[in-house]
């Protein structure tokens, strides 16, 4: 048996409402709120980035895993907003949690699925017996171009998973990845903001790959939608995950515990991972959970987990996802938000 031994979340406390952004750009807030089912999103403070959130989420995962961090053999951080273009986020994280120097580290990138990529890799390494424990983090402080549709959803957050063979709280049942080359959303080197293909990002991109991964995973595992307690999909907006769930034959009740986007925004590499931490927070022993991520470019990683008895002890050892999401929120005006996100041109 191998699987998740510890998990942790971190979401900054700042928020900005859709109306506040729409007001500045003269857009129609109600249509964003209704059309995309978005209300507000998280905003990192200037002293937060992918690395700081990864460290805090990982510390929460360690609190639940109750292991010696020196036993972590691999640390992977998946993000599309790594603070450096060259110099890993993973080494700062590994150093901060005390996993260095006996550790393998890599930074991963694949639009919004970089977080589950890390999970895919550590599960394989642990299963193969190459490492005792592995840490995979999905974290982002992604930017949407000012006035662009993505500005309403691009948010910040991190989710961390420690994987191993002992004291597992969610056993890995099956994994499957579905990938094709697809220019639906991209950012060139030295460009500040990403670009996207508008409606091209829908059916041929998000839907095709999530459906492909989910169907392939369920076929491989020989499990049907009705057999799952919960399912989590990547959440670029509120509508897409509910619609793809419906298409695949899932009920809303299976999707909702991991559906955070309307109050969180799209945390990119943290999106489905945070949906998973939120689901684990309320799960019970024996629950079957499927998570399917999506990264533009494009691909989906799918995982099926079965929750063990250990969830009862581990769940309360660190702050829950909804503690970060619902409590102690600090609402920003657009000006402060733009200052925090470095969108205001300053003197050299």
């Amino acid at each position: 048996m191998h699987g998740i031994v510890g998990y942790g979340a971190y979401i900054p406390r700042n928020r900005i409402k859709v109306e506040e952004i729409a007001k500045v750009w003269g857009a129609d807030a109600p249509s964003y709120k209704k059309g995309l089912m978005l209300e507000e999103k998280s905003v990192p403070s200037p002293d937060q980035d992918t690395i700081t959130m990864s460290v805090e989420a990982s510390k929460n995962a360690l609190r639940r895993a109750k292991i010696n961090p020196a036993d972590i053999g691999a640390v992977y951080v998946g993000s599309e907003s790594h603070p450096y273009a060259v110099k890993p986020s993973g080494t700062v994280l590994a150093e901060a949690i005390g996993a260095t120097p006996d550790v393998h580290t890599a930074d991963l990138e694949f639009a919004c699925k970089a977080g589950t990529e890390g999970l895919f890799l550590v599960l394989g390494l642990v299963k193969a017996g190459e490492i005792k424990y592995g840490l995979a983090v999905g974290a982002d402080t992604s930017q949407g171009a000012p006035g662009d549709a993505l500005e309403y959803s691009a948010a910040a957050g991190a989710a961390a998973f420690i994987v191993g063979k002992e004291n597992v709280l969610a056993e890995t049942i099956e994994t499957y990845s579905y990938t094709t080359d697809m220019p639906d959303f991209w950012r060139r080197e030295y460009q500040y903001y990403p670009r996207h293909g508008g409606r091209f990002t829908g059916d041929p991109a998000y839907f095709k790959h999530i459906i492909g991964a989910a169907k392939g995973l369920m076929a491989k595992a020989k499990i049907k939608p009705i057999d799952f307690n919960y399912v989590i999909f990547h959440q670029p907006n509120g509508k897409f995950p509910l619609r793809v769930g419906e298409i695949l034959g899932f009920r809303k009740e299976q999707i909702l515990p991991g559906w955070l986007v309307s109050k969180l925004g799209n945390t990119y590499s943290g999106s489905s991972p945070l949906g998973l931490t939120a689901t684990l927070d309320i799960s019970k022993p024996g629950d079957m959970i499927m998570i399917v991520s999506y990264g533009s470019g494009a691909g989906s990683d799918g995982f099926i987990f079965k929750v063990t008895r250990r969830i009862q002890e581990a769940r309360d050892l660190a702050p829950k996802t909804r503690d970060f999401l619902d409590k102690n929120k600090n609402y920003l005006e657009y000006g402060v938000y733009a200052k925090f996100r470095g969108k205001i041109r300053k003197a050299e």
């Binding site: 200037p46 002293d47 937060q48 700081t52 460290v55 805090e56 901060a96």
Partner: peptide, 16 residues
């Protein structure tokens, strides 16, 4: 809590 302290301009090291 682990946070970013400051960085040396746009091109310098980031201090945590």
């Amino acid at each position: 809590e682990f946070r970013k302290m400051y960085s040396e301009g746009e091109a310098g090291v980031i201090y945590y």
